Amino acid sequence: MTRPLRLVAVSGGLQRPSRSAALAAHLLDLISDELPCEQRLVELGQLAPQLAGAVWRTHLPDAVERELAAVEQADVLVVATPVFRGAYTGLFKHFFDFVHQDALVDKPVLLAATGGSERHALVIDHQLRPLFSFFQARVLPLGVYATDKDFTDYRLQDEALIERARLAVRRALPLLDLAQEVVVA
């Protein structure tokens, strides 16, 4: 018997509502439409007061530890962050600094980011890919970048972006199917 994939998304957005969280949720839904999944969305903005001052993982409160464990135990990971000064948010990096360095080896990771304009679109390739390459994750072929104008009331509205998100998931399916086979084995 096959258990559903543990599909976890991490949003580096600091506010609620968040365009990054909305993009992450959209990608979670697209993947869940294709494969049986248990979804979980980790919103770092909600963890900020408990996370920001910690230096060692042993000092983290249980709520943050549960979210880190969910990321480490995920079968598939979706990450989305707003662009802040040309990179992911500091809180996003701080959270991933606590992830065990071997926890994401070979884990499929779909990269996404949001920003005020198209000029930040390379954050996926110049910032996120190197971070998840350090973890030896299987970074999925297409990332998804959205700007403020792609949203209306924190919902994706731009058809070209919606199609790119679908394409990113379609191209990822062979790797996600492999992840599902590992779950079965």
Rank of each mutant, 00 (worst) to 15 (best):
P82G: 12
P82A: 11
Q73K: 05
A80G: 15
P174F: 04
G53V: 04
S133M: 02
L178H: 03
F135D: 01
G45Y: 12
V183F: 01
G86T: 06
E43G: 05
I162F: 01
L41Q: 09
P130C: 03
V83L: 11
S117G: 13
Q127T: 14
L41W: 10
R170E: 11
G12F: 09
P174G: 02
L35Y: 03
E181K: 05
H120L: 09
D158N: 15
L122R: 08
P108L: 02
C37W: 06
L41Y: 11
D158R: 15
P174T: 00
E67A: 15
T81E: 08
P141T: 10
V109N: 08
Y154V: 07
R164N: 09
A54F: 10
V71Q: 00
L111S: 01
R3A: 15
P61M: 06
H100F: 07
L47Q: 00
A21C: 02
L173R: 07
H94I: 01
K93H: 02
L161N: 04
A70E: 08
F135A: 05
A179S: 13
R166C: 09
R138Y: 03
K93F: 07
A146L: 14
L142K: 11
T114H: 08
G116N: 14
Q46H: 12
I124S: 00
P49F: 07
L5W: 00
A24E: 09
L41K: 09
K93T: 10
E159V: 07
Y88E: 07
A87D: 10
A185N: 09
L51V: 15
V71E: 00
Q157W: 04
A113R: 11
G116K: 12
R119C: 02
A137Y: 01
L128D: 00
E118H: 11
A70P: 09
A185G: 12
E118N: 14
L51N: 10
A137C: 11
